[in-house]
Write a protein that binds this DNA or RNA. Structure first.
Lengths: 244, 244
DNA sequence: CGGGCGCTTGAGGCAGCTCAAGTCGTGTGG
DNA sequence: CCACACGACTTGAGCTGCCTCAAGCGCCCG
């Protein structure tokens, strides 16, 4: 058996299913604008693809910036610490998204990144990325595009939080999750929240009780179905309408 | 054209005071990491340096993205329109800052940019920037850095707005202005707000009355002096402390 | 000099927070 | 495998900070 395997290897290239070529979120991640035959170059960027369990940290605030992380699967939250010790969540991140972009500016991480569930990430040492730019200019363009999108997202979020009532904020949050998670699992409109009500509240500037209450209201209005962490969107149009 | 320019340079270099070489915010803008003799390359990026009066627009939401704008002097606000027609301000921008970065992602502006006072900007067509990357890699690195900083800023803002009481938000806002404006005018801790209380409130998610009231409280606590648009910081440490 | 906009200050109402109690679901140890 | 314990969530009651509405002032510009 070991023998037959060896022979296979010689004849057929190793199908490394962890490679970008087989990644389920390839279309959303760095390789998106890279030609098929260049995808192995992206692969070589990757220093490791650790499997993390819930609660593992990718980096801490004030750590020296060394790598970006692409999420293959799972969920991550990033948060900062306010002076009085509380944590303030700045974002939730899912498969296909890139973490650490805000650290490029001053070469230091400004937030902590921790997994919310079993998660696989691809570690991309930034100096590899910088050197590969000379080979494939598309990669730099892609990173620039992703950063721009993150700015865009943050600013939408700013608009939302500043001017919306609690129910709208929750609706907006769920809709954002819908858009991002649905890109990946082609599932209909059912998904599982990887974070607690308290974390949602922290992120949205609401108390956990208010999050819970407003999710109940959304249910009473026939917009969503809630069963613990499981969310089913019953009326996506109405949900989107709330996000104005 | 290129020829005559070259000759001019040989005889007596034209002192074009609008050039980057003489710009008062050179240290904060794109040229920061560019060698002296390469600064004219940056200059050639610039398509125009219009003098705008209060209320002029740089671009509107949904416009095709064509140029970034570097602010030489003045102040600009960017805002989006919510579905119900209100405007939501996403940022204020001052000399040395770069506008339009959030449009790179999908080649379309997502917000409107309008001047708050007399303003001079340098228009940087993005295709010029992309082509110049091949000549001076430092420019791309600088843009990446600026984008990263903008992400960082937005996320700090998100933290602030989500979890802070009104007085803290106002304090935080003033402190951010202090840091950014003081980099430019070496003046002590006095500056003029280019925006109305209503615009501050809109940005911070507060009513204009609350902004006014909380600025009065900050005055009563001996932290600031207010005279219409003129702000004097009396106790910067206390102010910073409020921003936790 | 007049008008209007920007700003301040007051009064009352309500959305969301805090505190509290109780249920449910999950993970852990016997 | 079951029982227990703890964390997560929901729901209720009362309180408070911010919003809304309103009135009046002062600065700026035509």
């Amino acid at each position: 058996m070991a023998l037959s395997k060896k022979i296979d290897h010689r004849v057929v290239p190793i199908k490394d299913f962890s490679s970008c070529a087989y990644c389920s979120v390839r279309q959303l991640c760095l390789p998106v604008s890279v030609a098929k035959k260049e995808i192995n170059i992206i692969d070589e960027l990757v220093a490791s693809r650790p499997l993390l369990k819930k609660g593992d940290y990718l980096f801490h605030s004030a750590d020296k910036f060394q790598s970006l992380f692409a999420i293959k699967s799972g969920a991550i939250k990033t948060y900062g610490n306010t002076r009085d010790g509380r944590e303030q969540i700045t974002g939730f991140h899912f498969a296909g998204e890139l973490i650490g972009l805000d650290a490029i500016g001053n070469n230091t991480h400004n937030c902590n990144a921790v997994t919310l569930e079993k998660t696989v990430v691809c570690e991309l040492p930034y100096k590899n990325i910088e050197s590969i730019n000379l080979l494939i200019p598309g990669v730099q363009r892609e990173i620039t595009r992703l950063m721009s999108l993150e700015i865009h997202n943050d600013e939408e979020m700013l608009m939302a939080i500043g001017s919306m009532r609690a129910e709208q904020r929750v609706a907006c949050f769920l809709f954002s999750l819908y858009r991002r998670l649905m890109l990946r699992n082609k599932q209909k409109s059912i998904f599982r929240l990887p974070m607690t009500r308290e974390e949602i509240g922290n992120y949205l500037g609401l108390s956990l009780e208010t999050v819970s209450r407003r999710m109940s209201s959304l249910h009473e209005e026939g917009i969503i179905e809630v069963e613990n962490r499981l969310i089913k969107l019953e009326n996506i149009d109405k949900l989107q309408a709330l996000c104005s």
